[in-house]
Write a protein that binds this DNA or RNA. Structure first.
Length: 324
DNA sequence: AAGTAGCCCAACCGCGAATGG
DNA sequence: CCCATTCGCGGTTGGGCTACT
């Protein structure tokens, strides 16, 4: 048995709202308020919509003082700082940005700001640890793709553990073997010889590298490491070595062209997992990294002034009751 | 001009929390 | 305290629009 539906799906309209529906909802709420019951509201307002849908439409679009359009630099900073502090608590962020909705902020973060942060910060990230072994430049003449040489490999693992990264290759695949010291959470930042960020790799524990799989979401994947079941072996010093077998790749975004999903398959990577994606996004898997970057690189500066408000989460924002 | 890929955002979904009987 | 209902949130999806080839 699944969860009971919140409304009669068969008699409820879905999809984009028409101007007429907007008008009805707006009129009704401005006259009667929500009555504290969104489920009953659509019927009263003469709308064939789910209550949740009405609520969303009102909160995200119709209510007064909604601000649409570009986010300002100040808003960017607030969002970044809040993200570093509280993570993806969009509603709390929205409460700190008058006129902005949680949905807006979430969309903005996911489509623009996250990438912006990655680009701005990862190219200038101070070395957490000294770069270690360099990857060999690699050009695979058997394919049309060339691979970048990786010149930086940062990790938060203990320096004394001497992490290293090296590459080998076969006629077709670019193998990556990482040796990551035993550590509860290890983060590795890999960048190419232009200091362009390629991936942030994280291991939750030295036995599992689930977060290492995947590439950048959309279809311009930069880096693809790992398969479903990377092999690993523990070393006597407690470090752990992972080998991504035959399905570890580094793609050069600039040289690979528009490589679509078919091409990925050809490379033997199981990209279409349960959700139809190419596994985890390297951006997605690095949210903690972004948070760390933001807090170390930004929070010490001018945005601190803007942030007296969010620290006490228990006060969680006077919930905007001004909108009925 | 047509087809394809990427971006963006409104809307949906499902879960946990809150509330009330 | 329990259970049913509703709310609110965060993650995800789908489709329209634009840019590119």
């Amino acid at each position: 048995m699944g969860r009971a539906p919140c409304c009669d799906k068969a008699n409820v309209k879905k999809g984009p709202w028409s101007p007429e529906e907007d008008e009805k909802l707006k009129d009704y709420i401005q006259t009667h308020g929500t009555g504290g019951n969104w489920i009953a509201l659509p019927q009263k307002a003469g709308l064939r919509r789910c209550g949740k849908s009405c609520r969303l439409r009102w909160l995200n679009y119709l209510r007064p003082n909604i601000k649409h359009g570009e986010f300002s630099d100040d808003e960017d900073k607030v969002i970044c700082a809040l993200f570093a502090s509280i993570g993806s608590r969009w509603s709390i962020m929205a409460a700190q940005l008058p006129g902005r909705t949680d949905n807006d902020i979430k969309n903005y973060w996911n489509t623009k700001l996250k990438k912006k942060m990655m680009m701005n910060n990862l190219t200038s990230i101070p070395e957490i640890r000294k770069p270690t072994h360099h990857l060999q430049p690699y050009n695979n003449s058997s394919t049309n793709y060339s691979y970048p040489s990786l010149s930086n490999f940062h990790t938060n693992a203990p320096l004394s553990s001497s992490p290293y990264i090296y590459s080998t290759h076969t006629s077709r695949y670019h193998h990556q073997t990482l040796s990551i010291p035993s550590s509860p959470t290890t983060t590795a930042v890999v960048s190419d010889h232009h200091n362009q960020h390629l991936a942030v790799l994280q291991s939750q524990d030295h036995g599992h590298l689930g977060n290492l799989g995947g590439g950048v979401k959309d279809r311009s994947t930069l880096v693809m490491f790992g398969g479903d079941q990377p092999s690993s072996s523990s070393n006597s010093d407690g470090s752990c070595q992972y080998e991504y077998g035959s399905i570890g790749h580094v793609y050069d975004h600039n040289n690979m062209g528009n490589m679509r999903s078919d091409s990925y398959k050809e490379f033997g990577v199981n990209l279409f997992k349960d959700k139809g994606y190419y596994g985890d996004s390297s951006l997605d898997s690095s949210l903690e990294e972004i948070k760390q970057l933001i807090s170390t690189n930004l929070c010490s500066s001018n945005i601190d002034n803007n942030l007296n408000f969010f620290v006490d989460e228990t006060k969680e924002v006077e919930k905007v009751n001004m909108y009925y």
